[in-house]
């Protein structure tokens, strides 16, 4: 039990998907202009990452590995992810039409969010059990959502500040992100076993 807890903390904070592993940066820069959009995106991505990681685990261990089809991994994983995204899109449209409106183009684009494929591929490398994989994926995506919301909060404040014209827009965003990444490096002191 303790190992699982430490692994989850490590996946969520120490090796944060966005700030330490650099996955999912497009959505990080793209949909973090408002807190509620960022939270919605985080929620949808959490769902997709968890579901598709579990499906990818099954595909890897029951299909690709036994038949020696490792070279098809990228293609199959992206197909599994695309289906998971399609499923999420249908669910969100049904459950919360207003969130569906807000996420707009970004919902189908979760397919090309490298955090999803990245976590799935990391799991293949780490050879965890099914339960551990699911928890790792869930914790990673929680870390993703947390950073998305924090960064959206920072950018909401940033929108009110006067920024030199040359730095306006993305550059100041990067510099703020750099400071946030530095803050998250403080977590690296936590021992994760």
């Amino acid at each position: 039990m303790k190992e699982y807890a430490l692994m989850m903390i490590g996946a969520a904070l120490v090796n944060n998907v966005i700030l330490a592993r650099f996955l999912g940066l497009c959505s990080f820069m793209g949909v973090t202009t408002r807190i509620d959009t960022a939270a919605g995106m985080g929620l949808a991505t959490t769902f997709v990452i968890t579901v598709s990681s579990m499906a990818d685990w099954a595909v890897q261990n029951y299909l690709l590995a036994p038949f020696g089809l490792g070279f098809l991994r990228t293609v199959t994983f992206i197909l599994v992810i695309a289906s998971a995204v399609q499923f999420t899109e249908l669910t969100v449209r049904k459950v919360s039409p207003s969130l569906f409106q807000m996420l707009g183009i970004y919902l189908p684009l979760i397919t090309t969010n490298c955090a999803v494929l990245g976590v799935a591929l990391l799991l293949v490398e780490s050879r965890l059990s099914f339960l551990a994989s699911a928890l790792f994926a869930f914790a990673s995506s929680l870390g993703y959502s947390l950073v998305m919301v924090i960064f959206a909060g920072l950018r909401e404040r940033l929108a009110l500040a006067t920024v030199p014209r040359l730095f306006a827009g993305p550059p100041i965003g990067f510099i703020v992100a750099s400071l946030l990444a530095m803050a998250f490096m403080g977590f690296s002191g936590i021992s994760t076993g």
């Binding site: 650099f22 993305p170 100041i172 750099s178 400071l179 530095m182």
Partner: peptide
């Protein structure tokens, strides 16, 4: 990681 964001910015 922080350097990556900083330099790109």
């Amino acid at each position: 990681p922080p350097g990556g964001f900083l330099v790109t910015g």
